[in-house]
């Protein structure tokens, strides 16, 4: 939990520093061995490339902090995209109507799937792992059913234009992701809802016995995860100008990896969106830098795996330190 008290702030910086330092070392290393790494174009590329994972990971942080997890984000993202794509292709709608309704549809589908995940897992006390595994299949099957496995393309130009917009050389979609992360951070640290998420992640029974309804908070937290999935689906569509039912396979794993590398505890209640930002950046920089270095695909995958495990080891040391205070 962040705080403005200076002692805690210092401790928090130290805690966050490990992962920030790792990112810095990585950036310096790639800058030294791959000259094109630091070009403006490449940095814009990296920002574009981490955008979708960053949005998904921001949402995922909510589910993980409350003590759950969401394995369905990739599949739900495909469902959101194909439904939004279907709406966008309605000839009876004008462009602004189609875009507005398409975006709305994506957000609503995402929130509905997320809310359902949260409700089923907390009302019946089923591990979120299992419920969202079910939702993964439901959403993927739903997306295939809706499209009959076809790719949807040819969206209105103003819609597609968003994917390539940039402001002072920074991709607008990344700025959007950053703004969403900022809002998420404020919600987690400054609101009653955020307080409830952390408290439930730490000790749900104590929260219940303090007169709260953990169910409501948990359903809302998963709904937020779903909302971010809906947003990510729209960003995906504007970037690639297509929507197909098999998009997003494995995205949940990247999002979870970003959250974990960022130091959020898988058992809930501990972590922050600042960490998630750093985690997503590390994954993006690693993928980009290794390609620029000419490292083979297979070795790239090995390195990514090693980084995830190192992050968790680092985290276990941090947890021990924080226990001793």
């Amino acid at each position: 939990m962040p705080s403005s008290s200076s002692g805690v702030l210092v401790r928090r910086i130290l805690r966050e520093a490990g992962i920030g330092l790792a990112l810095l070392v990585m950036v310096l290393f790639f800058a030294a061995v791959a000259p094109s790494f630091t070009t403006h174009e490449n940095i814009a590329n990296i920002l574009t490339q981490i955008t979708i994972n960053l949005i998904l990971a921001t949402g995922m942080t909510f589910a993980i902090l409350v003590g759950g997890i969401d394995l369905s984000v990739g599949a739900v993202m495909a469902l959101c995209a194909v439904i939004a794509g279907t709406v966008l292709k309605q000839d009876s709608l004008s462009d602004p109507e189609a875009i507005g309704l398409g975006i709305l549809a994506s957000l609503l589908v995402g929130m509905a799937c997320g809310g359902l995940n949260g409700f089923v897992s907390s009302f019946w006390g089923i591990p979120a792992f299992i419920v969202t595994l079910g939702m993964l299949n439901i959403a993927r099957g739903g997306a295939l059913e809706v499209t009959n496995a076809r790719t949807i393309y040819d969206f209105p130009d103003p819609f597609n234009a968003f994917g390539t917009m940039s402001l002072l050389g920074v991709p607008v979609m990344f700025l959007l992701a950053l703004a969403l992360l900022g809002i998420g951070w404020l919600v987690l640290t400054r609101t009653v809802f955020g307080r409830m998420i952390y408290a439930i992640g730490n000790n749900e029974e104590a929260v219940r016995l303090s007169g709260h309804r953990p169910l409501v908070t948990k359903v809302l937290a998963f709904t937020v995860t779903g909302l971010f999935v809906g947003i990510a689906a729209i960003v995906y569509m504007t970037r690639l100008t297509i929507a197909n039912p098999i998009l997003g396979i494995g995205f949940e794993l990247n999002a979870i990896a970003a959250v974990i590398i960022g130091g959020t505890s898988l058992s809930g209640g501990r972590g922050s969106l600042v960490g998630t930002l750093l985690g997503a950046a590390i994954i993006g920089v690693l993928a980009n830098g290794l390609i620029l270095m000419g490292v083979s695909d297979f070795f790239r995958q090995i390195v990514t795996g090693v980084v995830i495990i190192l992050a968790v080891i680092l985290d276990s040391y941090r947890a021990r330190l924080s226990l001793r205070g």
Partner: peptide
């Protein structure tokens, strides 16, 4: 250069952007 993007649109986009930088 020759790299896999596992048949997928988004990954091809990322992989090719990075190739283009290199």
């Amino acid at each position: 250069d020759s790299r896999t993007a596992h048949w997928e649109t988004e990954e091809a986009n990322t992989v090719f952007s990075n190739m283009l930088t290199a």
